[in-house]
Design a protein around this nucleic acid. Sequence first.
DNA 1: CCTCCCCCCTGCGCGC
DNA 2: TGCGCGCAGGGGGGAG
Length: 279
Amino acid sequence: MPELPEVETIRRGVAPALVGRSVAAVHVYDRRLRWPVPLGLERALPGWQVAAVDRRSKYLLFRMVPPAGASPDGGTMLVHLGMTGSLRIHRRAPARTTHDHVDLVFDDGTTLRYHDPRRFGTILWVPGDAAAHPLLARLGPEPFSAGFGADTLHRATRGRRAAIKLALMDNRLVVGVGNIYANEALFRAGIRPTVAAGRLSRARLAGLVDAVRRTLAEAIDKGGSTLRDYVDSAGEPGAFQLGYAVYGRDGLPCPACGTAVRSLRQGQRSTFYCPTCQT
DNA sequence: CCTCCCCCCTGCGCGC
DNA sequence: TGCGCGCAGGGGGGAG
């Protein structure tokens, strides 16, 4: 269910429960994720401690360090939730249910449980510096970083005939903008999703950069408000409870002007837009 | 390099 | 109520 705001919400939820904890046991119940969960996970992690939980794009990076006195290099557990992955913290883990694939049990009994019906997610073990890992090395700028701006976006899209919505979802231009927020940000910016990226002016791209940031930031804020529910009990990150302006609203009135929202397919994914507000 | 299209997999909602 | 179909928030990878 995760786009960047959800992943960030999850990061903020799990980090305080795990940082400083040592791994007591790793249980892999089903290795068949996007790539097989490597045996190295069980081999490396026991005894190691969580130093930090970071995020890069929609990847969660669990920075692990060995016990004091052991080899100096740490490693990173790379987790991606795909379409349906979720992570839950349990003080005492309840019985495993369908689609619970991996448990990390910590020294105080706290359990981090990975659940993923479609198994499009990823759990990898990366010794040493994870930044060099192929899945991370070529990622574009984070949406809130200085590297994502009108100038760089303008330069990167010149000569590109691809639709702006597809460009926005191209993780070399900016990471973390998935289908929902691409739709919502384009609505906010007043840009039609089908316009060729290379034909948009710098000024319009500046508006888009701003719209992307505001859309994501709002969703993260909303997620934060229900963080406790997510971590401590049954519940979903709050961003799902957001009302969307256009996403999933085919035929319903545009919240700004009342025109019926339209939908179409781009790159095998659904696009929604207001034909009046977005040009 | 760019663009397009496929696929991995399960669950759910809808129309009949 | 049951069944088949299409669709779902990601993104790597290969073909052209």
